[in-house]
Amino acid sequence: MLELRDVDTYYGNIQALKGVSLRVAEGEVITLIGANGAGKSTTLMSICGIVPPRDGEILFRGQPIQDRSPDEIVALGISQVPEGRRIFPQLTVAENLDMGAFLRRDKDGIKQDLDYIYGLFPILAERRNQAGGTLSGGEQQMLAISRALMARPQLLLLDEPSLGLAPLIVKRIFEIVQRINADSNTTIFLVEQNANLALKAAHRGYVMENGRITLEDRAENLLANEAVQKAYLGL
């Protein structure tokens, strides 16, 4: 469904991604783990066109998308939950969700998805008229995920959904991610520092170091891999 071929991305003169190649199949939950500054978020930014790659190809359903603008990429069916949530603080919860469905015109479908989301996160239904900025961190993360889902994406990109959240809430968020994948067969690409939880939720995983992919395997194999255990699982 999504394929990166030898992607090089730069910030000015600094090369953040060095020949990154990876592949995501339809219906999969894929995770990309790695340390701070390894290039995980940059990979996501490159996919959704906010920091376009300088070299290499990004294919979505066989179509090259590396030269498309971010709004065109969203229109193709790729939604992003940006790092640090980035909800619209002064818009209400309902307005935030509305922005998620910005490119859609099918009113019935939007209503249906809204009901699904309020079922997934009842707390958002309760707070629908509250400004997004007044929600707690966990609720904001739920809102950010819901907002991305409102675009009814085929591929959902999640950037560090566990960032700054209490362990119980992190667990809850990962359960929801798996449920979204199961409910609507949405393909999920998850970037995480919390390798343990991410690998438990994913089917396959990639390990990134200094802008390069160093390991690729099924999630349970990575969990059992000694090098990964040492470097990322603290075992």
């Binding site: 959704c48 906010i50 603008s69 971010p70 709004d71 969203v74 229109a75 939604s79 992003q80 940006p82 980035r86 909800i87 619209f88 603080p89 002064q90 818009l91 307005e95 509305d98 922005m99 998620g100 910005f102 490119l103 907002r147 991305a148 675009a151």
Partner: peptide, 24 residues
């Protein structure tokens, strides 16, 4: 209008607005 809603979104967070598919 929805045009205005996207202007608000740009004001609030331009990157997030872009991620929603707004041609900022």
């Amino acid at each position: 209008s929805s045009h205005g809603r996207s202007l608000w979104a740009i004001r609030e967070d331009e990157v997030a607005a872009e991620a929603m598919g707004v041609d900022t």
